[in-house]
Design a protein around this nucleic acid. Structure first.
Length: 458
RNA sequence: GGCGCGGUGGCGGAGUGGUUACGCAGCGGUCUGCAAAACCGCGUACGCCGGUUCAAUUCCGGCCCGUGCCUCCA
């Protein structure tokens, strides 16, 4: 009993988390479809579940974190057709860029990152089993899951089959026996990627890959399945249907879903043209500030992504790092303070945890004794680490060292600071202030102290 | 039409049946050549209307507004 509580979409309530196998937590998170660079909406689940995994690793001796790569999909096919590039090139490059972007956001890689195209035989095996058990049928080269064959279909999204049919937007393909049936396997034309199967050359439907790969690496029943809120229906609902009908075992026990984000008050969409890529944002702010901004709202709440919010995140981190400057030799404490752990264990309340970070920074700023400073800084560092924050060197943080293009000009800044020191020594304050204003106009802020003058970037 | 989520001080954003969230911004002060940073002080917020209660922002009901999903969008 760890005290961890998580909101389970299945029950729509917060539940105490206990792993199925003591001391081994198994979780699966839906990863990206690799057809385009990750946008900030893709980054939210990666960051949120990264915090969850960090927390779980501190609570349990063993954690297996699986996050898939979807590298067979009609959006990929469309992109290949439009660009004339081979599919393998597109998926490989996009995967590489995804890894780079997520690393820049401080997200640790998952333990296992299976690719859909490497698990086609497992998918075919599951589909055959479903057909054999009367849960699926072949029609015009397609294989469809027979939704009426599963009495409790709809338990995750909370909708009955009738309600779904009542939805006006359902387009019923002629080969479906029931309007709610969904595709497990579909035929490929010669120009589309395809694999030989008992039903001819074709490719998998969207949902079956997660059922097959989670079973491969985590077993029939495991602890946590996560993803964006939009995946609740149909993706996760259909995963449950496939897995439970095939395996006759409960699938994931806890379902976690992060809320959506908007951009400057508007829905992020291609038609509005306001899709913000992580890559683009990394040009405006450090990855850690982007991460901090994401964690500033609770993961289940909607998050309105704004330029102002990103700047505020940077300022918030500035304050925390500045506090750490007072204890340059501090090492992270073995464990984060109870206040921070308790906040995170209460369904990942990162905004509350961040408020405790600020409280620690305030105490650290007030501390005069070196031991107190080291102790508080150690607590702050351990707390930050739990959320993937505050891992940088405080002095490098303030000068923006390591960021693109940030290092050039450092020499000039030092030279101007030296000139100003001389002016100050000569009591020529007018000249000293002029230099300070000149640097300020370049986004360089000076701070005098008994130890000398230091500078930071705004 | 169906299912769901949300409306908190200037802004962001937690939380709670009665006592400070926290951060940013703002105002006053300490410090400083002046600043910056830091520290100290200052804000009587909880969509509307009813109900329950000694007491509701927090529970219940209704309403208004915003918003997400409803077959491949995280």
């Amino acid at each position: 009993m760890s005290g961890l509580k998580l909101h389970n979409t299945l029950s729509r309530t917060k539940e105490s988390f206990v792993p199925l196998v003591p001391n081994h937590v198994r979780l699966y998170v839906c990863g990206p479809t690799v057809y385009d660079r990750a946008h900030i909406g893709n980054a939210r689940p990666v960051i949120v579940f990264d915090v969850l995994v960090r927390l779980l690793r501190g609570l349990y001796p063993r954690v297996t974190y699986v996050r898939n790569i979807t590298d067979v999909d009609d959006k990929i096919n469309a992109k290949a057709k439009a660009s004339g590039r081979p599919i393998g090139d597109i998926t490989e490059e996009t995967t590489k860029l995804f890894h780079e972007d997520m690393k820049a956001l401080g997200a640790l890689p998952p333990d296992i990152e299976p690719r859909a195209t490497a698990h086609i035989p497992q998918m075919i095996g599951m589909i055959e089993s479903l057909i054999g058990q009367g849960h699926a049928y072949e029609a015009e080269g397609h294989v469809l899951f027979a939704v009426p064959s599963m009495p409790d279909y709809g338990k995750l999204s909370g909708r009955s089959r009738d309600e779904m049919i009542a939805g006006a937007r359902v387009e019923v393909a002629p080969y479906k026996k029931d309007p709610a049936d969904f595709v497990l396997w579909k035929p490929s034309s010669p120009d589309q990627p395809g694999w030989e199967s008992p039903w001819g050359r074709g490719r998998p439907g969207w949902h079956i890959e997660c059922s097959a790969m989670s079973r491969e690496y985590l077993g029939e029943s495991f602890d946590i399945h996560g993803g964006g809120q939009d995946l609740i229906f149909p993706h996760h609902e259909n995963e449950i249907a496939q897995s439970e009908c095939c395996n006759h075992a409960p699938f994931a026990r806890f379902w976690l879903h992060n809320g959506f984000l908007k951009v400057e008050g508007e829905k992020m969409s291609k038609s509005i043209g306001n899709i913000l890529s992580v890559h683009e944002l990394l040009g405006e702010a450090p990855g850690e500030a982007i991460r901090f901004a994401v964690l500033s709202a609770h993961y289940r709440q909607p998050l309105d992504w704004t330029d102002e919010g990103l700047k505020a995140a940077k300022v918030g981190l500035d304050r925390l790092y500045r506090a750490l400057e007072a204890a340059p030799d501090a090492r992270p404490a073995p464990e984060a303070p109870l206040s921070v752990r308790a906040a995170l264990m209460d369904d990942l309340n990162t905004p509350l945890a961040i408020s405790h970070l600020h409280e620690l920074a305030g105490l650290l700023n007030k501390a005069t004794d070196t031991d107190d400073k080291n102790r508080l800084a150690g607590a702050l560092l351990a707390s930050g680490a739990l959320m993937g924050l505050l891992g940088a060197n405080p002095l490098q943080w303030k000068t923006g060292a390591g960021e693109a293009g940030a290092d050039k000009g450092d020499q000039e800044i030092q030279a101007l600071i030296q000139q100003r020191q001389e002016a100050k020594k000569a009591k020529n304050f007018k000249e000293a202030d002029r230099i300070r204003d000149e640097l300020k106009a370049q986004g360089v802020l000076l701070e005098d102290s008994p130890a000398g003058t230091s500078w930071r970037r705004a």
